[in-house]
Design a binder for these strands. Sequence first.
DNA 1: ATACAATGATCTATATATGAGTCATAAATT
DNA 2: AATTTATGACTCATATATAGATCATTGTAT
Lengths: 112, 112
Amino acid sequence: MAKASNRIYSHYTREALELFAALIREARLEKKMTAQELADRSGISRGLVQRIEKADPSCAIGSVFEVASILGLVLFDSDEHSLAEKRALAISKIALMPKSVRKTKREVDDDF
Amino acid sequence: MAKASNRIYSHYTREALELFAALIREARLEKKMTAQELADRSGISRGLVQRIEKADPSCAIGSVFEVASILGLVLFDSDEHSLAEKRALAISKIALMPKSVRKTKREVDDDF
DNA sequence: ATACAATGATCTATATATGAGTCATAAATT
DNA sequence: AATTTATGACTCATATATAGATCATTGTAT
């Protein structure tokens, strides 16, 4: 068996994973697609689709996003900006920031 | 080397991955956290943080979400409903749907 | 200008995710 | 009610992601 990997995840992470999994399964059923079909179209195995729909944290993020994409799920809630725009925006913002973080003696980071 | 896995991903998937990666790096720099620090707090290695920030599709989704969670990134844009609420909603919706998809002779699924 | 710490890149070894089956059960259509 | 397909659960073999180094370089701060 896959041994379930005894890693620990935050509550938030688990819930996000479970929501994502539920959205995927919901979309698949809505589109009346079998797990096998979805697997084929996504270029992965049926077993992996099953694990994705069970919110297995060890699945490759690329596979999960691809499945979501095939199902037409909207990632990162595109409201005003498109996905590409948001990406470009974030990247240009990063360009303006210090490229590496320097730990001075100034205690831990207290930015709140 | 990791051999980069020659899998193919949709354009949408790639952009989503890159946006996610950018948001993570941006948040880390904003919080003045070193890659090592983020790795420690997330329970992963620095190398993995690097790959995540480079939008490597093969990273485990659990690790990526955990990193995002540590950085306080909001997954699935919680507007009206909380993450948990959305999850519960999706799950109860699934419960009302047919549990398995049946392929009749009625051509492929033409739902558009 | 110098020092030092963080990053990026790369390598190796090990753990483990994934694909490819199989089987039993559940559930949808007839 | 009977049939047949999709699903869920499991096993095994193999590919590969990950941790854990090290080293060169870049960037920050003094």
